[in-house]
Amino acid sequence: MSRELTISLSPHEKGNLSVEKIMWSVVIALIPALTASVYFYGIHALRVVVLGMLFCIALEYLIQKFVLKTKVTAFDGSAAVTGLLLAFNVPSSIPWWQLLIGSAAAIGVAKMAFGGLGKNPFNPALVGRAFMLASFPVQMNTWPAPLRKIWESGADALTSATPLGILKEGVRDGTPIADLADKMPSYFDMFIGNMGGCIGEVSAFAILAGGIYLLSRKIISFHIPLFYLLSLAGFTGLFWLFNPVKYADPLFHILAGGAMLGAWFMATDMVTCPMSIKGQVIFAISGGILCGAIRLFGSYPEGCSYSILVMNAFVPLIDKYFKPKRFGKEVDNGK
């Protein structure tokens, strides 16, 4: 009997998936969206993203090291993803100290206060964003125009409203949708991201590319993004069919605002979405409807982040009642 023998339980074989791999894959998947926003908004977008990541990693490190005094796992990539997503959810003109406060809310309140990675009930990046939106409404609703528009106009700086903002204001004033069209970017511009908005959410195309990367690596499943966007489109489409003068069409709703970013990267956050496929579908469909409802009837122009936060709260309940299909239960062998 030699001392170095180890006793442990099967399995003795281990797959090569790890938390780090998952998290850094998400970071890689967000690079196209980052590239697009740097292209449209310039170096400011990069500044905000780098700061966001730095703040989140540093805060997680400090909290783990000095407050909780636990093992430091700040570099496993999860803080980087939170920082990245938080930065993606703010305008590129945000002052650094507001971003720091947002990061503190995201990491400190939403994540570490609950016990760190895996224990947070709400998506930390969205909590950070909600906190900033409530605290700094002016800065959070000032959208720098894409660089090209600024060059074209010859001004030093220019702000432009988001398509959803234009829509909300227009509808409030009673302007028919058709008349708003000249203020709006074209669908193609919206698809590639040539419009005002938060850093990460502008380019549907880049987000789609990142999402497909995640799908191909099997980090996420297609259920949440697909059903979220479908239910958003279905809900808004219903009203559009009923009254196209007052309501915008579903394609607009999918491309505008944070719906794409939310569906692909926020709602699919593993920690805060349901576990079973059935649960995920319920989660996504309810989230999509909520988002549509906030956009059409709420006072905020954008409802995506709130819809996901609200649905996060339902996840334990969904997990309790929507179980995966058990093998050998409710069997029908054709008898």
Binding site: M1, S2, R3, E4, L5, T6, I7, S8, L9
Partner: peptide, 24 residues
């Protein structure tokens, strides 16, 4: 003296259910 090392959850009740212990 331990003859083996146990690699698993550090809980007596789990360890007991699975093997006789590092000391044998």
């Amino acid at each position: 003296p331990p003859k083996l090392s146990f690699d698993g959850p550090a809980k007596c009740y789990v360890s007991h259910a699975l093997f006789c212990g590092e000391h044998g």
